[in-house]
């Protein structure tokens, strides 16, 4: 413990960066907020793209932040196996920058939604989900207007066959129903892996269910992925 330094990349309009820092600190994972224009610090052994509304969601959520030069460094780090987690706006930035496939776009409801949801763990053999069993159901909040996972049917099938779907929206009992799908995501997809299992993005906020004071700590296992991937 304590050997990992996670760079939490702050863009103009990021607003979950401090939550992420507190959550990681609680887990005794060393973390540092990094302004995107300053680039990644030397010795970065993990990267978190936090939630928020970078650049006011202009054009598309995440589209502007994805063009920041720091994202070239992030992509390079991804290729070297550095663990990278994108949450909410960070997930949108991840898809816009090509770290992960698909797109997170306007909710089916066309509204901003802030509510707890249930997620089914689709794979428990990745750094982000080792704490769980496959099929486990965890409760994590969402807070987004553009979280509907969209991709071509053909490509989605290929991602499914490759085991690149990490979380799906489900009922409390783990069933994948339309009612349990808060935003109309294809096949209830809530989070996906990149080319490597060390890269993951998800729309729900694990950092908001990590501190015991909040009452629910279901998200801890996801953030602990930074240590597991580093080991």
């Amino acid at each position: 413990m304590g050997t990992v330094t996670v760079a939490i990349v702050r863009f103009g309009g990021s607003n979950c960066d401090r939550d992420a820092e507190r959550a990681l600190e609680h887990l005794e994972i060393d973390a540092e907020i990094v302004w995107h224009e300053d680039g990644l610090p030397d010795g970065t052994t993990g990267i978190m793209l936090p939630g928020g509304f970078s650049y006011g969601d202009y054009l598309r959520a995440g589209a502007m932040a994805a063009q920041s030069p720091i994202m070239d460094e992030v992509r390079e780090a991804a290729g070297e196996g550095v663990p990278i987690l994108g949450v909410c706006n960070g997930a949108q930035v991840g898809c816009e920058s090509g770290l992960t496939e698909g797109a997170f776009t306007t909710n089916e409801s066309a509204r901003f939604q802030c509510e707890p949801v249930y997620l089914r763990v689709e794979r428990a053999d990745t750094p982000w989900t080792e704490r769980y069993e496959e099929g486990d159901v965890i409760e994590v909040p969402i807070a987004h207007g553009e979280g509907r996972y969209e991709i071509t049917d053909e490509r989605l099938e290929e991602l499914e066959d490759d085991g690149r779907i990490l979380f799906r929206y489900c009922t409390e009992d783990g069933e994948l129903t339309d009612e349990a799908n808060p935003n109309g995501s294809k096949h209830n997809v809530a989070g996906v892996l990149g080319d490597r299992e060390t890269v993951a993005v998800l729309m729900p906020h694990p950092e908001r269910v990590t501190l015991p004071d909040i009452g629910n700590t279901d998200g801890q296992g996801v953030l602990e992925g930074f240590e597991r991937a580093d080991a």
Partner: peptide
Amino acid sequence: GVLDPEAET
């Protein structure tokens, strides 16, 4: 084929 919730609204 891509859903357009804003257009639908």
